[in-house]
Nucleic acid binder design. Structure first.
Lengths: 390, 390
DNA sequence: AGTAGTTACTGTAACGTTACAGTTCCGCAC
DNA sequence: GTGCGGAACTGTAACGTTACAGTAACTACT
């Protein structure tokens, strides 16, 4: 995220119209030149650089650089002096300079699909990540991928061009090529959703097993005996979790249920509507439907009504939701919240800590509403001094 | 946006393990050194740079640079040769190098509020912008601002640190300090929503006057005679547009209506629900409600039901919506769509063309569903060759 | 034959930063 | 009083790119 404009930026004055007054007499050549260009520094409105501060403090650029990052070989008074001047003139490190020299981009990339958009889930994710990055020098770049290029391409692009220090992505599959690729290329990342491929990596996941389990319980409590699970696409890892909880729930309550094989949450709302209508008009119709995404529930509700039935009467619904919408507009619908904004926070924290070298095992969390998440400790960014965020 | 990983990146081979075989005998000193470091170039897996290509083609770095950007003083055969090699080794320009040298960041920044989140509008905006940036070398950075820091700070930060080549922001006010600031500092930008301050600038807006006008017409057609407008916050410029259309509609149809003074679309859903319930329980209750945001309609519907009334019976609603949700889940609700994703496309296009020096007068568009938008021509990015996007 | 112009290249420096290898100075031990 | 070690600084080079000022070779015109 673009770190929010930071506190010490009060002084918006620039070291613009300085004239060469005070030329150091001692070490001649290079210093003189530096002083000139630092002082003559574009009389217009040039941003101050280390050179500017070096000139003003009568120190070498290196010294200023080291002073600002609190290096041990700079004396305390010098550090104080340098910081004072830096603050006064509103110095902000040049990201391009840092990036070129160190290779660190100070960028986290959120990779999303250009097609997918499940009811503002991306907004929530962006906001959550921003919550965390706001206090750091990191910027958030959103990198989309189109269907024809495939999700791996985006990751590959980021790795090849080293255009980010860390990546966040979702729609994880049990065996996810992106996880393999990023791991192999040493690119820190965190996934929204777990994988099942024997690679330890940072993730944050919603406990979909608990979710479907509870959904079954709620429907069972309403005397529903023939459930339908509208699952996520079978390719995604959390499909398995949803199934597991669903089946366990059915067993525990001794009721029937099946998983829609022709339909999943990735279908268009119109398709869902049509299919649900069909299903409800046929024999052996379900009396309870579990929706594993908030938007799919919209289609389901529409389908139910198309079939001439009423939610809460002939059929009950329990749905996941990531914004409190369904529960507002259709109080009859049972909802369980996935806090995607919090997921964003967890993921951002995890990537940052991963960048700082933390082991992946310590960067994994699973969330469930009433059993609040295994919170990750907030990242302590030792290598980047919060003062010097630009 | 991170431009999507591009086509010519097929060759993921690197010029890694080249040995110094062919050292140019002619011009000695500098060339030899360059060749050595280009060839000895980190035997591990270093990204190819201009230097790598220069060594391979036996040309100077400058020549390679100019060849790749199709400069007129390079011969056609040389250009072809350079491009061939560049493609083969999968050369991608280093953004930090370019940024440092030229000051161009190849970044567009979308400034959003950390608090605001009106039902996935940010997602749509991000996707729309991405649609456009995908074909360019530009990346999309999302820069949030928190309430206490104020929206101007984010723009100021971007300008001061020159961390983007262009900015997109919304929630425009009639007299908007951000517009003034960005204009004064020569930072290209485009706003979602117009302003009214005598400054010409790129914008894309939804025609809210037409919207409220039509909303009134629709309600009048349903014999509604006492309307309520749930307006946006009065500080925003489109408040005025909404009012104008509303009043005009009332006049044209000779019916009554008023604008809620205590409530606007920025209120929490619960507040809206409570207020609407109150209003409907009081005397002179409205029989038609116009919602200027999709999410507020949710609250309104809830309020209506809380009051024991039914949407479509005692009260009708017409609402703006940015995703087809209301119209799905509550077919009784009249909806008019604002295509925010398209707004994102328009805005991105406008900023890019503004960066390319196009006059703001030519970068303004107003959209209305059935009277399709004054489409901006697609940007022709003359200065950045699509081939060389990294 | 000499100059001017053109074409196609080359070389240098600079953008702002940091890694690393000095250098200077001082106090202290022998 | 020479040497040593450490504290506190300095200088140089390099990251990859491009602007700009050459330069060499060749053609064309007087």
């Amino acid at each position: 995220m673009a770190n929010s404009p930071n506190k010490e930026s009060t002084g918006s004055r620039t070291a613009s119209s300085l004239k060469v007054i005070n030329d150091k007499p001692g070490n001649a050549t290079a210093k003189t030149k530096a002083a000139q260009s630092a002082a003559g520094n574009n009389d217009t409105e040039a941003r101050p650089t280390l050179k500017t501060i070096a000139y003003m403090t009568n120190l070498a650029v290196t010294t200023v650089s080291r002073a600002l990052k609190d290096a041990p070989d700079i004396s305390a008074p010098t550090k104080a002096r340098v910081r004072l001047v830096a603050d006064q003139i509103g110095y902000r490190p040049n990201r391009a300079g840092i990036r070129l020299r160190t290779g660190r981009t100070q960028v986290i990339s959120l990779v999303i699909s250009l097609e997918e958009e499940v009811m503002g889930i991306t907004s929530q994710m962006v906001l959550g990540i921003s919550d965390v990055l706001s206090d750091t020098p990191y910027h958030l770049i959103v990198t989309p991928y189109s269907q024809q290029q495939g999700p791996l391409e985006a990751i590959r692009y980021i790795c090849e061009t080293r255009s980010a220090d860390g990546v966040i992505f979702s729609s994880t599959e049990p065996d996810d090529e992106r996880v393999r690729y990023a791991t192999a290329h040493g690119m820190p990342f965190a996934t929204h959703g777990r994988t099942d491929m024997g690679i330890q990596h940072p993730y944050h996941d919603f406990d979909n097993t608990k979710f479907t389990l509870e959904a079954v319980s709620r429907l069972a409590a309403k005397q529903r005996r023939n459930l339908l699970l509208l699952s996520p696409p079978a390719s995604l890892n959390y499909y398995r979790h949803c199934i597991a909880g669903f089946n366990q729930g059915l067993r525990e309550h001794g009721i029937n249920g099946h998983i829609s094989s022709t339909l999943d949450t990735s279908a268009k709302l119109d398709e869902i509507e049509a299919m649900i209508k069909d299903l409800l008009s046929g024999p052996d119709r379900p009396d309870g439907i579990i929706c594993t995404s908030g938007s799919s529930a919209i289609g389901v509700i529409a389908g139910i009504e198309q079939a001439g039935l009423t939610v809460g009467k002939e059929v009950d619904i329990v749905s996941k939701q990531s914004i409190s919408l369904l529960s507002k507009i259709r109080k009859e619908v049972g909802t369980i919240n996935e806090d995607v904004r919090n997921a964003g926070r967890q993921l951002a924290t995890a990537v940052l800590r991963s960048i700082d070298g933390e082991a992946p095992e310590n960067l994994q969390s699973v969330e469930y509403p009433d059993m609040p998440s295994t919170d990750l400790p907030s990242p302590d960014l030792p290598s980047h001094d919060p003062q010097s965020k630009d």
